[in-house]
Simulated scan of single mutants.
Amino acid sequence: MVRKQTLNNLVNKLKNEVIPDVLAKEVYNEVVKVESKNVQKNVYGAYSPTVYQRRGQNGGLGDPKNHVATFSYAGNMVTMAVRNITKGKDGFGYLAELVEYGHDGGYGKYDYPYSSVQEPTFLKPRPFISSTKAELERTLAHLTAMKTGMARRGIKVK
Score class of each variant (00 low, 15 high):
M1G: 14
V2G: 10
R3M: 04
T6C: 03
L7C: 04
N8C: 04
N9Q: 13
K15M: 10
K15T: 08
N16L: 12
N16D: 14
E17R: 14
V18G: 01
I19S: 00
I19M: 09
P20Q: 12
D21A: 15
L23T: 02
L23Y: 01
A24F: 05
E26P: 01
V31L: 00
V34W: 00
E35N: 14
E35C: 03
E35L: 03
S36H: 00
S36T: 15
S36N: 04
V39S: 00
K41Y: 05
K41E: 15
K41G: 03
N42Y: 07
V43D: 00
Y47T: 04
Y47E: 05
Y47F: 11
S48K: 15
P49E: 05
T50I: 14
V51Y: 10
Y52C: 08
R54A: 13
R55C: 02
R55G: 03
G56R: 00
G56K: 05
G59M: 08
L61T: 00
L61M: 07
D63V: 04
P64Y: 02
P64H: 10
K65Y: 02
K65R: 12
N66V: 02
A69D: 06
A69P: 00
T70E: 06
T70L: 06
F71N: 04
F71G: 02
S72R: 14
S72T: 15
Y73G: 07
A74Y: 11
G75K: 06
G75H: 08
G75P: 02
M77K: 15
T79G: 07
A81M: 11
A81T: 14
V82A: 01
R83K: 15
N84F: 02
N84S: 12
I85K: 14
T86R: 01
G88R: 01
G88S: 04
K89R: 13
K89E: 09
D90Q: 11
F92A: 14
F92H: 06
F92T: 13
G93S: 09
G93F: 07
G93I: 09
G93Y: 07
Y94K: 12
Y94H: 11
L95M: 15
L95F: 06
E97H: 12
E97P: 12
L98A: 03
E100Q: 13
E100Y: 01
H103Y: 09
H103R: 05
Y112T: 03
Y112D: 04
Y114V: 06
S115P: 06
S116W: 10
V117N: 10
V117R: 08
Q118C: 05
E119D: 12
E119T: 15
E119P: 03
F122A: 04
P125N: 11
P125G: 08
R126Y: 12
R126Q: 15
P127W: 01
P127L: 07
P127Y: 06
F128W: 07
I129T: 03
S131L: 05
S131C: 04
K133Q: 10
K133Y: 11
A134N: 09
E135W: 07
E135N: 11
L136I: 10
L136F: 11
E137D: 15
E137C: 04
R138D: 11
L140W: 05
A141R: 11
A141M: 07
H142A: 15
A145T: 13
M146G: 03
M146W: 10
G149A: 12
M150F: 09
M150S: 07
A151M: 12
R152Y: 05
G154F: 07
K156G: 02
V157R: 02
K158F: 09
